[in-house]
Computed example of a mutant assay.
Amino acid sequence: MLSLQALWVSTGTVALAEIGDKTQLLALLLAARFRKPWPIALGILAATVVNHAISAWLGMEISNLLSPQVLRWIVTASFIGVALWTLKPDELDTEGEKLPAHGAFIATTIAFFLAEIGDKTQVATVLLATRYSPLWEIVAGTTLGMLLANLPVVWLGHRFADKLPLKLARWLAAAVFLALGLWVAFRGIG
Results as ranks from 00 to 15, higher is better:
Lys120Asp: 09
Pro134Val: 06
Ala169Arg: 01
Arg131Leu: 13
Trp155Glu: 00
Phe186Met: 13
Val82Phe: 04
Gly20Gln: 07
Glu97Gly: 00
Ile54Gly: 05
Val126Asp: 04
Ala175Asn: 08
Val126Ser: 09
Leu4Asn: 13
Gln122Lys: 06
Leu164Glu: 00
Thr76Ser: 14
Leu135Tyr: 10
Pro37Asn: 15
Ile62Asp: 01
Val154Ala: 02
Met146Ile: 12
Ala140Arg: 04
Arg131His: 12
Gly12Leu: 13
Asp119Trp: 06
Leu172Ala: 15
Thr109Asn: 04
Leu151Glu: 05
Leu42Tyr: 11
Trp8Tyr: 14
Arg170Trp: 08
Ser67His: 09
Val154Arg: 01
Leu58Gln: 05
Leu128Phe: 08
Ser63Ala: 15
Asn64Val: 06
Ser3Val: 14
Gly181Asp: 12
Glu91Gly: 07
Thr142Trp: 12
Ala53Asp: 01
Leu180Gln: 12
Gly188Ala: 01
Ile62Met: 13
Leu66Arg: 02
Leu151Pro: 00
Leu4Arg: 06
Phe34Asp: 02
Gly96Thr: 14
Ser133Trp: 12
Leu156Ile: 01
Gly141Gln: 09
Leu30Glu: 01
Leu128Lys: 03
Ala174Trp: 11
Ala17Lys: 00
Leu172Thr: 07
Ile189Lys: 04
Ser78Gln: 10
Leu128Val: 03
Met1Thr: 07
Val14Arg: 01
Pro134Ile: 06
Asp93Ile: 10
Arg187Ile: 00
Asp21Trp: 00
Ala47Ser: 11
Val184Thr: 15
Ile110Gln: 06
Gly59Val: 11
Ala124Thr: 09
Arg131Val: 14
Ser10Lys: 05
Leu99Val: 15
Arg170Glu: 05
Leu28Thr: 02
Ser55Lys: 08
Ala115Lys: 06
Gly188Arg: 09
Met60Thr: 10
